[in-house]
Simulated scan of single mutants.
Amino acid sequence: MHGNEQPPQPGHPRQPGRPPHGPQPQGQPPQYGPPPQYGSPPVHPQFVAAPKKKGGCLRAFVVGVVVLAGLVLVGVGVLLSGGGDSPRSDTAASPGSDAGTSAPAGEAGKRAAAGIGDTVKDGKFSFKVTKVEKGVERVGDQYIGSNAQGQYVLVHVTVKNIGDEAQMFLDSAQKLLDTADREYDADSGAAVLGLKNSNAFLNNINPGNSVSGILLFDVPDDFRIKAIELHDSLFSDGTQVALR
């Protein structure tokens, strides 16, 4: 201490702009503020790292899964549709052609319409419609049978396996068409109850064998028949036979 100077009183900080008491190192500017506390570590600015956002990797993973699922669905659709480039089966036989032969191709995708008595092909099966019954109200007898909601249409057909392995003939794969091109499913339950020898429900046919069956459809009373679309399986292209 020099002279009559009083030491700083506790609780009263030094006034800004007033140099501290005591000698200062030569060549250094005067330091203001409280003296450093000996033995305590220097104070450094504290840096707080911002937390990284979670979810970026998860979002990328979800997007990848969605894209992969879309590609799988597209691939399955292409397989089920035959790839889109495979040629369709022979769709009809020309009227008056010999039994067992399919119709020749016409101009650019056009084929002569097949009718009752003509033979057409789809996949491993050939088909020949031999008879059509319309306006049937009930099939079966008085004890076991089925009543139509509208009317039953019965399509008699002969199916031959022209492939090199056994193939299942399914009535549920066949479609009846009206003049507005609406499709009607076969009624398997009514056929089992009311038709003793329908031979159209889950009938496995070996190569070279033929089966005569009846396809039964329950349609409205005002139904206007156009054709039947015949398939060797649920996913085949099918072939049409005109029934008018």
Rank of each mutant, 00 (worst) to 15 (best):
residue 170 L to F: 11
residue 160 K to P: 04
residue 191 A to Y: 00
residue 207 P to Y: 01
residue 206 N to G: 12
residue 209 N to Q: 13
residue 217 F to D: 07
residue 234 L to Q: 15
residue 216 L to M: 01
residue 214 I to S: 05
residue 204 N to P: 11
residue 176 L to F: 04
residue 190 A to V: 03
residue 166 A to R: 10
residue 194 G to I: 02
residue 196 K to A: 15
residue 182 R to E: 14
residue 238 G to M: 01
residue 213 G to I: 01
residue 197 N to C: 10
residue 177 L to E: 08
residue 186 A to G: 09
residue 219 V to P: 02
residue 166 A to W: 00
residue 168 M to F: 13
residue 221 D to E: 15
residue 210 S to F: 04
residue 184 Y to F: 08
residue 178 D to M: 04
residue 193 L to A: 10
residue 197 N to I: 10
residue 159 V to H: 01
residue 212 S to A: 11
residue 189 G to W: 08
residue 225 I to Q: 10
residue 180 A to N: 13
residue 157 V to K: 00
residue 161 N to S: 00
residue 161 N to G: 02
residue 223 F to R: 01
residue 189 G to R: 12
residue 164 D to M: 12
residue 191 A to C: 03
residue 213 G to F: 00
residue 232 D to F: 10
residue 179 T to N: 09
residue 189 G to Q: 14
residue 157 V to Q: 03
residue 200 A to G: 09
residue 176 L to N: 06
residue 163 G to H: 01
residue 161 N to D: 04
residue 237 D to M: 12
residue 178 D to N: 03
residue 236 S to A: 06
residue 232 D to R: 12
residue 165 E to W: 07
residue 218 D to W: 02
residue 217 F to S: 00
residue 185 D to R: 14
residue 238 G to S: 02
residue 205 I to F: 01
residue 230 L to N: 01
residue 219 V to Y: 06
residue 208 G to S: 03
residue 215 L to A: 05
residue 207 P to W: 03
residue 198 S to T: 13
residue 217 F to I: 05
residue 230 L to D: 02
residue 217 F to N: 07
residue 229 E to A: 13
residue 212 S to G: 08
residue 174 Q to R: 05
residue 194 G to T: 00
residue 178 D to L: 04
residue 159 V to K: 06
residue 216 L to R: 04
residue 163 G to Y: 02
residue 206 N to P: 15
residue 182 R to F: 09
residue 172 S to L: 11
residue 215 L to K: 01
residue 235 F to Q: 15
residue 185 D to H: 13
residue 227 A to R: 09
residue 192 V to H: 12
residue 200 A to T: 12
residue 186 A to W: 07
residue 190 A to S: 06
residue 216 L to A: 07
residue 165 E to T: 12
residue 195 L to F: 07
residue 233 S to G: 10
residue 234 L to K: 14
residue 175 K to R: 12
residue 160 K to Q: 04
residue 229 E to Q: 15
residue 233 S to E: 06
residue 226 K to L: 09
residue 203 N to W: 14
residue 210 S to P: 04
residue 217 F to T: 06
residue 234 L to E: 15
residue 200 A to F: 08
residue 213 G to S: 00
residue 174 Q to I: 06
residue 182 R to L: 14
residue 220 P to V: 05
residue 232 D to C: 10
residue 236 S to V: 03
residue 224 R to L: 14
residue 185 D to P: 11
residue 221 D to V: 11
residue 165 E to L: 05
residue 236 S to C: 03
residue 237 D to R: 15
residue 169 F to N: 01
residue 207 P to I: 02
residue 172 S to F: 06
residue 166 A to S: 12
residue 191 A to M: 06
residue 239 T to I: 03
residue 167 Q to P: 05
residue 166 A to K: 03
residue 193 L to Q: 10
residue 158 T to V: 11
residue 214 I to W: 07
residue 191 A to N: 06
residue 172 S to P: 10
residue 160 K to I: 07
residue 172 S to H: 08
residue 228 I to N: 01
